[in-house]
């Protein structure tokens, strides 16, 4: 028996919109810790890890660990039927091949339930070790989205370089080149507008912009994004989900041929 009641149902809607471009089908794992997902994109270039901690739900019942395979497009179709202010409850029974999403309007005058078919998904679970990163950049998520969008009109890849001067995003394409430098500005009045750069060692890595742009679908989840970089390791692009957890995207770098 599984029953998860999320008062801020819009969070689940935003989570789905954040990941469904990258991943088509995925297993949602439910345990005492929370509701989580780990999945690679079909090319095995990027990985998404989601955690919604049990404490963040108003009611969280999960009698035993359960894994539910879902089509994220179908799940998104159902969650789009929930109002932004609705309370969403996810219900499942042991051995059942369906999951139910219940939507309650804030005034309790409209209650809907949508039953979705589950699917069997073979997926490998990867162990992600804790790593010390050479550089950690925190910046407004909307600014990062703007930079990825702007650069992708010039080139296909972005070089992210961190020095003590700040973080530089560069691209080149047939029509020319572009460089955008963001400097640390932690003295701004609003913390959500701050850019901070922690650097232990200078880093410079190349990534496909197509994936970076896909990660920025998570922008509505958080005002800030954290980009963790180490030479020759995947970048981690993290959007924290207020009080509940995170969506983390891992992207393998491109290297010189």
């Amino acid at each position: 028996m599984l029953e998860l009641r999320l008062v801020q149902g819009s969070l689940l809607k935003k989570v789905l919109e954040a990941i469904r471009e990258l991943v088509n089908d995925a297993n949602f794992d439910c345990s005492a810790t929370g509701f989580s997902l780990q999945a690679m994109d079909s090319s095995h270039v990027a990985l998404v890890a989601l955690l919604l901690r049990s404490e963040g739900f108003e009611h969280y019942r999960c009698d035993r660990n359960i894994s539910m395979g879902m089509s994220l497009n179908n799940m998104a179709k159902m969650l789009r039927c929930a109002g932004n202010d609705d309370i969403i409850t996810v219900k499942g029974d042991d051995g059942s091949d369906t999951v139910t999403f219940m939507f309650e309007s804030p005034t309790q005058d409209k209650i809907s339930d949508f039953e979705m078919k589950l699917m069997d998904i073979d997926s490998e679970h990867l162990g992600i070790p804790e790593a010390e990163y050479h550089a950690i950049v925190r910046m407004p998520s909307a600014e990062f989205a703007r930079i990825c969008k702007d650069l992708s009109s010039i080139g296909d890849t972005v070089v992210i370089s961190v020095t003590k001067e700040g973080v530089k995003f560069s691209t080149k394409g047939d029509i020319g080149t572009a460089n955008i430098v963001c400097r640390q500005n932690s003295s701004v009045d609003k913390p959500e507008e701050a850019t901070t750069v922690e650097m232990n060692e200078p880093v410079s890595l190349t990534f496909a912009l197509r994936y970076m742009n896909s990660f920025t679908k998570a922008t509505p989840l958080s005002n800030q994004v954290t980009i963790s970089l180490s030479n020759e390791l995947p970048v981690v692009v993290e959007y924290k989900i207020a009080e509940m957890g995170y969506v983390r995207f891992y992207l393998a770098p491109k290297i010189e041929e």
């Binding site: 095995h44 990985l47 490998e124 992600i128 890849t157 891992y250 393998a252 010189e256």
Partner: peptide, 14 residues
């Protein structure tokens, strides 16, 4: 533009 590495090179299957 460089050679794209795969993500599963970096993590082990658990």
């Amino acid at each position: 533009d460089g050679y794209q590495l795969n993500i599963d090179l970096f993590f082990t299957i658990t």
